[in-house]
Amino acid sequence: MKTFFLFALTLLLSVTAARAGQSTAGVIKSLEGKAAILRDGRQIEAKIGDTLHVGDTVTTEATGSAGIMLEDNTLVSLGPGSRLDLNDFAFEPQNGLFAVAIKLIKGSFAYMSGIIGHLAPEKIRIETPDAVIAVHGTRFLVNVEDAR
């Protein structure tokens, strides 16, 4: 019994340490239809409450949409048939670390900045296949047509 307890505790600590190594960026707050998270070469069906990490890609199907809240309360609403890469995120105000870097590959999204947009708007980078958006306001809508 004691051996089992030690094994379970070791397993729990190693899982916690592995998760701590991943940089949490946000969470899926709402879903309509189907969406997926692409992480480390795997596709995971998105569910409300799923955690998003730096390096994740979120996709929505042709009839799907997803609401994402980043750790600094930034809101991103993905429209149908969208693909969004979460390239960088840092929110450590106590250390002066701020970063938001997202790229809309296709589809549409609405953006409403959170705390980083107010404290360090120059640290926000929004990319599309054709442009980089500088965030001087707090809200905007982007649509990227499929280049086919």
Rank of each mutant, 00 (worst) to 15 (best):
T3S: 11
L6R: 13
L6K: 14
L11M: 11
L13W: 10
S14E: 04
S14Y: 08
S14A: 12
R19Q: 11
A20H: 14
S23C: 07
A25E: 04
V27Y: 12
I28L: 11
S30D: 12
E32T: 08
E32R: 15
E32A: 09
G33I: 12
G33H: 13
K34F: 02
L38W: 09
R39A: 02
Q43N: 07
Q43H: 06
E45W: 06
K47R: 14
K47I: 00
L52M: 06
D56P: 01
A66C: 10
A66L: 03
I68H: 13
I68A: 05
L70E: 02
L70P: 01
L70H: 05
G81D: 05
R83F: 02
L84G: 07
D85H: 15
L86N: 08
N87L: 10
F91Q: 06
P93T: 11
G96S: 05
L97K: 15
A99T: 04
A99N: 08
A101L: 08
I102E: 07
L104K: 15
F109N: 04
A110D: 07
S113E: 00
S113V: 00
S113M: 02
G114H: 12
I115L: 12
I115K: 15
I115R: 14
I116A: 13
L119H: 07
A120R: 10
P121G: 08
P121N: 08
K123Q: 07
I124R: 13
E127C: 11
P129R: 15
D130H: 14
V132A: 14
A134Y: 08
V135I: 07
H136W: 05
E145S: 10
